[in-house]
Amino acid sequence: MRLTTTNVTRRSAITMLGGAAMLGLAACGSTSGGSSSAGSDAATTESASSDQLEPTSGMDFVVGFDQEYPPYGYVGDDGEYTGFDLDLAQRVCEIQGWNYQPNPIDWDAKDGELNGGSITCIWNGFTVEGRENDYTFSDPYMLNAQVIVVKADSGIKSFGDLAGKTVITQADSAALEVLQGDQADLAATFASLDTRADYNTAFMELESGAVDAVACDLSIAAYQLAQKPDTYVQLDDELSSEHYAVGFKKGNTDLAKAVTDTLKQMDSDGEVEKLCEKYSDQGISYSNWCLGK
């Protein structure tokens, strides 16, 4: 079972107890370094020597993603990690000869994971706009929009109807960024703007009537509408439009370029279009693909 990505080796368990007994952060540091073989390939240690990752054949390519973020990354019917972005990542790794490792993360911890080196990239419907200075991005490959979803019987038709309503979105998400930035005036008309840890919880609250609207990505909205077409409607107005790209730790330009080039190649081979069709019922459309067009 792939979900439990963390296998405890005997050695790392012993090291851990030793570290615990020493009680110091320094101890934790050395144990972390020392147990690199736990749950991963030994190749990780090579990349640990420098901040700058060079694309090399056989290297570990650890994809950090939110496992509750369909259709980009989620648990498939067979229990394996799947999704549009993960399929793209896996294929890129195959072409490059990298060791593909999907690694679910807590979204709030993504920067630490990336900077610390436990993941190679964030590839998960990751919006570029507003984050340009924080990451080294691949070229944008997908167009996206931030939209508002309400219940079908709510009577809310436009942004104007949202005055005095309760709106929620995901913590640390692009939708939140827009609502606190360019669309702050709109947000000011809401009764409240709250955040949830994941969109699934947000939509459960919407369905149960606890809140009036959810602000989210176009694709998230499409996925939820596809699951429960009679329950939700998406407002025609868009909060913003934006681009998705693969995010790397700042400075990893060679790696970002390698991914960009491979994606372009996959598009010209027709692989991307096929993949979009595979996820079309979940809101992915090839018309939104923007790389190399």
């Binding site: 963390t6 851990m16 615990a20 972390s32 370094g33 073989s37 736990a38 630490g112 994971e113 080196g117």
Partner: peptide, 20 residues
């Protein structure tokens, strides 16, 4: 380990960190 001591993390680190 990373932010204080500059030690690179790896996928095994998190399991160690949780248990510690």
């Amino acid at each position: 380990p990373y932010y204080v001591f500059g030690i690179q993390l790896n996928p095994g680190s998190k399991w160690t960190a949780v248990v510690v």
